[in-house]
Design a protein around this nucleic acid. Structure first.
Length: 775
DNA sequence: CCATTTTTTATTTTT
DNA sequence: TAAAAAATGG
C-alpha cells in the first residue's frame, strides 16, 4: 500500500498496527486520513480479515464518511467491517443477545423527550412535585450516573443521607423498572446494557473479543467512563487498540465525556505507542498561533503545538459593535463584500456562536441582504410533533409494551380518552407492575372506567390490532401510508388545510407543512428499503426504527453543495472547516457562558476555552471575532464585559478594527465604580440598572443609558430611525476606518461623506457605525 | 374532556 | 422574546 503522501508521524500511526496506540491528533492534522489509511493497511498489507476490524466514531456522519473513504481504497472488502457509532454498535450487539440479561430483543429506543416524559411520570408516581426537583436536573443526574456505570442501587448507596440524592435514587430505580417493563432503552442504556451483557455472559464476551482483533476509536476525548469500560473489555485480550483524539477539543464534559480517558490512556495500557500529529493542513500559521496561545491558558492538557506550512495569511480581525443587530449586520456585510472581492461562494463562510438563540439576529441580517444560509441544529426533523406521533404508532406496532408511545397516541384521533382515564389506567398498571397495554386489554373488567372511555379504548385496540396485522404484510414505507390512512391522521391534516385556507392565520400552511413532513418521512423509509436491499440485510420495521432513533439529523448531502452560508453552534462545528469563519458574541456571560447563580469552576472555564479553541481552528484563511456593547437577552438589553478569551489572544496575530466608541473598555473600567453602588450588577447589568446606577455616578439624568454604561456621553449614531435625523448636511462625523469627515448628502440610510483623508465616499448606515460629533 | 390563556423560564446535545 | 408548562374556563 502506498503511504507516500503521509508525513512521518502519520505514517508511524498507520504502521504501528500491534499493541495499544494513542494518536494525539491536533485539529486539522489529517486524523481521518490516518484512520482510513490504517484500516486499509491492515487489510491490504497485514492480511487482516475485515470482519476482525471494529472502528468506532461518535456521529453517523463520521462513520459514513469513514466507510466511504475506506471503500474507495479497498473496495467491497469493507462490507464485513464494523464501522459504526458507539450506539449503533451496541444496538447490533444487544439485538442479538439482550435476552440473556432479561430484556426483550425487540426493544425500542427512547429519545430524550421520551425520557423526559417517562421521568416526569416516575416523579408523579413517587409524589415528587416539589419545585426543588426539576426533572431536567434529575435526568442529567441519572444520565451521568449511567455514564459512570452506576446502577440505582449503587446510586442510593452513594447518596447516603443526602435528601435530594436519595430522592433522585428513588426516581432512578422506578425509571429503570418502567423502562424494562416497556421494553425500552434510553441512549445511555445502550452502552450500559452492552457492558452489562458482556460482563454477565462469558460466551458473548469471548465471541466479540475474538471477532474484534483490531479496534479503533475516533474522538477518544469524548468517551464516557461507560464507553471506556466497553472498549477496554473488548480490547483486553489482544490489546490491539488504537485511539485517536485531541484533549484540547474535549467539549462534551457536561455530557459525561471523561477527559481522563485520554489523559490517562498511557496509564491504562502497557507499552503505549504515542504519536502526536501536530502538522495542520487546514489553517494559516496566524490562526494556529492564535489558537495555540489561547489554549496554552489551560492547565489540564497534553502539551502540543500545531504548525502549518501556510506561513502568510490575514490577521484575526476583532471588532466591537453596538448590539447584536449591528453585529449581525457587520458580519453579513463583511461576508457580502468579501465574497464579491474574492469570488468565494457563500458556502465558504460560517458564522459560529455559543448558543442557538444567537442565530436569530444573524438570520435576520442574512435575510435582509438576501444571502442564502443553512442553520444547523434547532428543531430536528424527528422531533416534530407529527413525526413523533407517527413514530409512536410505528413503535406501538412493533412493541405494544411501549407505554410512552401508547400514551402519546391513545387519543389520536380523539376518542374520548382523557387525562382522567389515562391516570386511572396508569395507576392500575403501576399497581400491577404491568404495561399500560396489558391493562388496556383487560379494560372490560375494569369498573372505574366509563363506558365512553371503554368504547374508545376498544377502538384503539382494534386499530392497533389491525395495524399489527398489516405489518406482517407490508414494507415499512407502505405500512406508514396505511397508518396515516387507518388512523385518519392525514385526512385530519387535510381537513385543517381546507378549513383554514381562506383565513390569514397561517394554520393552513402549518398543516400543509406537516403533511409535507410526513411525505418526506415516507421517502426516508423508501430510501431505507432500497439501501437495505443492496446490503442484503433484513428490512423490518424494527431495524428501521432503531436506525431513526440513532440518527440525529438528516444528513442532507446535496444541501452541502448548495451555495449557502453556514450558521451553527461551536459545538456542532467540530470536525468541519471553512475558509472564512466569524465567531460572534465574544462577551463574558455569553462566551464563556454564564451559569445560573454560582460562578463557574476552573474546569468549566477550561472547557469553554477548549470550545473557543475548536471555533478558532475551524477557520482556514480568515477569522473574525466580534463582540458588542449591549445585547438583548431574554427580551431585556444586557451589558457585558468583553470575553476574557479575547484578552488571551496574542497581540501579534490580532488586528483590532477601529471602533467608533470604546464603550466596553469603559464599561470594564467603570465596573469598580458601578460595583460600589450595586455589587449585584457586577457580572451582568441590564440597561435598566445601568441607567439608575449611571445616574448616580454621573448625577445627570439626560444621558442615555448606553452612554452612561459606557462611562461617557459619546454621542454616537447609527442606523436608527429615531436618530437618523440628527445626521444633516454639514454634520461632522468620524468613521472607524476613514477618519473625520463632513456629510455632503443623505438619502435614506446612504450617506455621502467627504473625508479629510480619503475623499468622498458613500456609507450605508445599516451596517456601518459612525460617530457623530455632539452639537 | 379540551381549548385557550397565563405563567414561567431560559446553554452546549455527536446518540 | 418566545417557547414550554401550568392553570383556567367552557
Amino acid at each position: 500500500m502506498n503511504l507516500d503522501d503521509l508525513n512521518v508521524a502519520q505514517r508511524q500511526a498507520v504502521e504501528r498496527t500491534e499493541g495499544p496506540v494513542l494518536i494525539l491528533a491536533g485539529a486539522g492534522s489529517g486524523k481521518t486520513k490516518v484512520l482510513t489509511t490504517r484500516i486499509s493497511y491492515l487489510v491490504e498489507d497485514k492480511n487482516v480479515n475485515p470482519g476482525n476490524i471494529l472502528a468506532i466514531t461518535f456521529t453517523n456522519k463520521a462513520a459514513n464518511e469513514m466507510r466511504e473513504r475506506v471503500d474507495k481504497i479497498i473496495g467491497d472488502n469493507s462490507r464485513d467491517m464494523w464501522i459504526s457509532t458507539f450506539h449503533s454498535c451496541c444496538v447490533r450487539i444487544l439485538r442479538k443477545d439482550i435476552n440473556k440479561i432479561g430484556y426483550n430483543r425487540s426493544f425500542v429506543i427512547y429519545d430524550s423527550s421520551d425520557q423526559a416524559t417517562l421521568i416526569k411520570e416516575c416523579m408523579k408516581e413517587l409524589d415528587i412535585n416539589d419545585k426543588k426537583f426539576d426533572h431536567k436536573m434529575i435526568i442529567s443526574k441519572i444520565s451521568s450516573a449511567k455514564d459512570k456505570l452506576m446502577d440505582p442501587k449503587e446510586f442510593a448507596r452513594q447518596a447516603g443521607s443526602d435528601f435530594l440524592l436519595k430522592k433522585i435514587a428513588e426516581v432512578y430505580a422506578v425509571y429503570q423498572e418502567r423502562l424494562k417493563r416497556s421494553s425500552a432503552l434510553d441512549f445511555d442504556d445502550l452502552i450500559v446494557k452492552t457492558v452489562e451483557l458482556l460482563k454477565s455472559s462469558e460466551d458473548v464476551l469471548e465471541f466479540y473479543r475474538n471477532k474484534f482483533k483490531y479496534i479503533m476509536v475516533d474522538e477518544y476525548q469524548d468517551t464516557s467512563r461507560a464507553q471506556y469500560e466497553l472498549i477496554k473489555m473488548l480490547a483486553m485480550g489482544h490489546q490491539n487498540i488504537c485511539v485517536v483524539g485531541d484533549d484540547d477539543q474535549s467539549i462534551y464534559g457536561w455530557r459525561g465525556a471523561d477527559i481522563r480517558n485520554i489523559l490517562e490512556f498511557e496509564r491504562d495500557y502497557d507499552d503505549v505507542f504515542v504519536v502526536k500529529l501536530e502538522q495542520n493542513y487546514r489553517s494559516t500559521q496566524i490562526i494556529l498561533d492564535t489558537a495555540n496561545h489561547l489554549i496554552a491558558n489551560n492547565i489540564e492538557r497534553k502539551k502540543k503545538r500545531l504548525w502549518s506550512e501556510k506561513k502568510d495569511g490575514e490577521k484575526v480581525q476583532v471588532k466591537l459593535l453596538k448590539n447584536e443587530v449591528e453585529e449581525a449586520n457587520f458580519v453579513v456585510n463583511e461576508i457580502y463584500e468579501n465574497s464579491i472581492k474574492t469570488g468565494r461562494p457563500f458556502s465558504e463562510y460560517a458564522v459560529l456562536y455559543r448558543a442557538n438563540a444567537q442565530a436569530r439576529a444573524v438570520e435576520d441580517a442574512l435575510n435582509k441582504f438576501q444571502i442564502p444560509y443553512n442553520i444547523y441544529g434547532g428543531t430536528k426533523f424527528y422531533e416534530r410533533k407529527e413525526i413523533k406521533d407517527l413514530l409512536a404508532f410505528l413503535r406501538v406496532i412493533v412493541n405494544p409494551q411501549d407505554d410512552i408511545s401508547v400514551k402519546r397516541i391513545i387519543n389520536i384521533p380523539r376518542r374520548g380518552i382523557g387525562l382522567k382515564t389515562i391516570e386511572k389506567l396508569e395507576d392500575r398498571a403501576s399497581m400491577m407492575k404491568e404495561s399500560l397495554y396489558s391493562v388496556l386489554l383487560d379494560v372490560d373488567n375494569n369498573s372505574d372506567i366509563s363506558t365512553k372511555a371503554k368504547k374508545g379504548i376498544n377502538e384503539f385496540l382494534d386499530m392497533v390490532g389491525l395495524l399489527r396485522a398489516l405489518n406482517e404484510v407490508y414494507k415499512p414505507s407502505e405500512l406508514i401510508e396505511k397508518v396515516l390512512d387507518v388512523t385518519g391522521y392525514k385526512s385530519e391534516l387535510e381537513f385543517q388545510v381546507k378549513k383554514n385556507e381562506n383565513m390569514q392565520n397561517g394554520k393552513a400552511e402549518e398543516a400543509q407543512d406537516r403533511i409535507d413532513n410526513l411525505m418526506e418521512f415516507i421517502s426516508i423509509a423508501i430510501e431505507y428499503e432500497t439501501g437495505v436491499l443492496n446490503s442484503g440485510e433484513e428490512k423490518n420495521l424494527e431495524e428501521f426504527l432503531s436506525g431513526i432513533s440513532l440518527s440525529s439529523d438528516i444528513d442532507d448531502e446535496d444541501n452541502d453543495s448548495i451555495d449557502k452560508v453556514s450558521l451553527m453552534t461551536m459545538h456542532s462545528s467540530k470536525g468541519l472547516e471553512f475558509p472564512v469563519v466569524f465567531i460572534v458574541g465574544m462577551e463574558e456571560n455569553i462566551f464563556p457562558i454564564a451559569r445560573a447563580i454560582h460562578s463557574m469552576s476552573d474546569a468549566e472555564i477550561e472547557e469553554e476555552r477548549r470550545l473557543c479553541y475548536v471555533g478558532i481552528t475551524r477557520a482556514m484563511k480568515e477569522l473574525y471575532l466580534t463582540y458588542t456593547v449591549s445585547r438583548v437577552l431574554y427580551g431585556k438589553p444586557n451589558v457585558n464585559k468583553k470575553s476574557r478569551f479575547l484578552g488571551e489572544l496574542p497581540d501579534e496575530t490580532v488586528e483590532i478594527l477601529d471602533s467608533p466608541v470604546k464603550p466596553v473598555e469603559f464599561a470594564g473600567a467603570n465596573y469598580s465604580l458601578i460595583a460600589k453602588y450595586a455589587d449585584k450588577y457586577k457580572n451582568s447589568m441590564n440597561l435598566e440598572s445601568a441607567k439608575s446606577i449611571g445616574a448616580k455616578i454621573k448625577k445627570e439624568k439626560d444621558y442615555d443609558a448606553m452612554n452612561v454604561a459606557c462611562g461617557e456621553g459619546a454621542g454616537y449614531d447609527s442606523y436608527d430611525s429615531s436618530k437618523i435625523p440628527r445626521l444633516k448636511k454639514g454634520s461632522v462625523v468620524r468613521h472607524p476606518k476613514f477618519g473625520d469627515g463632513v456629510v455632503v448628502s443623505k438619502l435614506g440610510a446612504d450617506v455621502t461623506i467627504a473625508f479629510n483623508s480619503k475623499g468622498i465616499k458613500k456609507i450605508n448606515l445599516e451596517y456601518n457605525t459612525i460617530e457623530v460629533k455632539k452639537y
